[in-house]
Design a protein around this nucleic acid. Sequence first.
DNA 1: AAAAAATGACTGACCGTCGGTCAATTAAAA
DNA 2: TTTTAATTGACCGACGGTCAGTCATTTTTT
Lengths: 201, 201
Amino acid sequence: MAIIVDKTQKRRDIALASKSIILDKGIQNLTIASIARAAGIGKGTFYEYFKSKEELLFELVEILMHAHNARIEAQLEQAERTPEKIKIFADFFYDEESGELRELYKMFTGISLLSPQEEMKAFQTECFDYYYAWFEKIIEEGIERGELKPVTRQMTGAIFATAKGMFIISETTERNCDLKHEIHTYVDTLMALLACEGEDV
Amino acid sequence: MAIIVDKTQKRRDIALASKSIILDKGIQNLTIASIARAAGIGKGTFYEYFKSKEELLFELVEILMHAHNARIEAQLEQAERTPEKIKIFADFFYDEESGELRELYKMFTGISLLSPQEEMKAFQTECFDYYYAWFEKIIEEGIERGELKPVTRQMTGAIFATAKGMFIISETTERNCDLKHEIHTYVDTLMALLACEGEDV
DNA sequence: AAAAAATGACTGACCGTCGGTCAATTAAAA
DNA sequence: TTTTAATTGACCGACGGTCAGTCATTTTTT
């Protein structure tokens, strides 16, 4: 043996070193050579740590996700009412702090749609399950506390998907709508409809 | 002059000739040469009619969209109540007839997310506006007829986006949920909440 | 403790492939 | 015959991916 390198750590280092260029140019428009250059390593070394550009993206998303999750968790603990919690959840799609992760997530989704690989789907599923479990808990607590009608359960998946759909639309069309406002209005309106007291809106 | 070719028609012909291979392998995994071969033309000729693979995809989507629109329009005319109309609309995301267009739309969205070009966005916006206008009309009629509460207006965009979000999730994760059932349940539940008579669910 | 051997990290030259161009060719029209 | 739209595939540069060789460090031998 010789020069034992912490492979896991170096993977992270390379990923983080290429973060800005990826966010700047988009992974699609980058060559492996330029990524390696940005990370200060040779092209061959890149392949020592990643199978492809896509794998680098995984790594980056995973790193940023951890930071994001910690932020969300802290915010959720402070929130009281269900609509607030859902909004914290949906913040991802428009707030400043999530900007970088959101941009990577966009590329990520694009790749998934274009060339559905097994690893890709597995990772997406992992992320989805993680956040969906959280979301379900919020809804379930809302029902238990009497803030939401039980029928909300039938809509959990759909509500979860709505913000994602709105985000994709806003990103792929010229409709530069105010995502924050639109999502908040949606959540407020829906929550009023789902509230147990017969508040007419 | 010599050999006057109907450029527009030939564009369509080339697009349709390469449809099956695109649906089969996915546009990402095809070379221009293989597309040209499938269409029975030389590589140079391909560039005479399309700037890129993406443009070919545009053409195909446009062709299939026209057929799809005609089908939808016919169905909508027969439908009576609002929930039915919305379901006809959402059919796109799971029914057999829309399979090919849906597959192309997936690739299309993927490209839009990965490398946002101006032309791409413009075309996506065009498609979006077309269908959204239709959708808005359905909701508006529902309100006028007294089937829906006026507050529905605040949610039109969000409801429109929901099926899209659910579709993207089902395509990018291993969650092979029954999209048709999930969407129908969502529509029924939401419509019940939005119905003017105070039907408790 | 010095030299030799072993090992793994690292690299860029190299190879095959692909996107895109263009000079040459074809064939209808004038 | 000349003109010109249409077509083509050979060609080029760039890219992804590989691999033989180099280097730095540890381990073993003397």
